[in-house]
Design a binder for these strands. Structure first.
Lengths: 189, 189
DNA sequence: GTCTATAGAGGGATAGAC
DNA sequence: GTCTATCCCTCTATAGAC
């Protein structure tokens, strides 16, 4: 993971990884079989560690605004999920690894969203499972954008924050507005 | 672009490209100087061609729903922008190419959004420039997700469509609800 | 488990004939 | 402009000593 973070997933080779680890190149094949399997193992390990480390934090998220704030703390820490997803386009083995790592995150997000939406006017706007995927897509896209243009990532995050704030503001509206929103949501389905 | 589409950006080499073109490998260096410069040139050409081909279609987009529908027609056609963005993480030269291609798309989106928002209750929710970046991030993220899980891409697109439909529905509300929304938006800024 | 050594392949880039 | 031929590099993976 250190070599991926520093030089990108394209620079990962048995030699570069071994050099960072201070061991011999042949050990990669002894322990993992191939370089790709090493990468898969690294991501599996990383994903499990990250999820475990943030589960407590996610449990305390009870509003959309808090979810965005939580995502902001993750920026930079999830360093190489977008490169992995892009590499998956070419390599089906990496694709499986990416899918598994993403599925774990999406499941966590879905649990949080289900909890938040249950008490919101926006409940019923979309299936929580679909919504979780959309939220993941938005954050991944922002991170992807940030790779070439950090200011664009800021913009995207700011807008997501604004949308969350608006959603929270809608929950604070009076009964007339809430009824109108409920009806509008029902019609959009 | 054909080799990138088929085998991924990682499989691009002077030899593979030359083979697809039916010419000699050395010509890559004669015409482009290096493989990276060839890739940059290919993306610059592709981006210009795509934008030009869709500018007329974008000019006819006058609602958020139509924008989502337009984006749906683009799926699969913008084949390798996400791999390029991911590769940009490693290679600054590709990063410049990706930034330029993205900037063109974002400018187009911003023009459309500015037009749409001017007639919407949601005007003032966010700066159109920021909003355009967020929209681009959402679509890129959905495409990225689709690379490993096509169903997840469908989910993300469905939710984006729902949000657009809700936004349109809000514009059809009566004066009481509109005033409440305006006030809520003002407060979230 | 860790190392050296090496086979075998692919790739970037250049020289020089035509 | 297009080709052949070639240099030199890095890479994956294996064999085999320790």
């Amino acid at each position: 993971m250190a070599t991926i973070r520093e030089h990108g997933i394209g620079a990962v080779s048995a030699r570069t990884v071994a050099a960072v680890a201070g061991v011999n190149q042949a050990l990669v094949f002894y322990h993992f079989g191939s370089v790709r399997e090493l990468v898969v193992a690294a991501f599996r390990d990383e994903a499990a560690r990250q999820i475990a480390g943030h589960r407590a934090g996610l449990a305390e998220v009870t509003s959309l605004g808090a979810l965005v704030a939580f995502a902001a703390t993750l920026r930079g820490e999830s360093p190489a999920l977008t490169p992995l997803l892009a590499a998956a386009h070419t390599d089906p083995l990496l694709g499986e690894a990416a899918k598994a790592a993403l599925a774990e995150w999406i499941a966590e997000i879905e649990a949080v969203l289900t909890r938040i939406l249950a008490a919101s006017v926006l409940d019923g706007l979309a299936d929580p499972a679909d919504l979780a995927r959309a939220v993941a897509a938005a954050f991944l896209g922002a991170e992807l954008l940030g790779g070439v243009d950090p200011l664009a990532e800021e913009s995207a995050f700011a807008v997501i924050g604004n949308l969350a704030a608006l959603a929270q503001a809608l929950d604070g509206q009076g009964p007339v507005v809430r009824r109108a929103l409920k009806a509008a949501i029902k019609r959009t389905r």
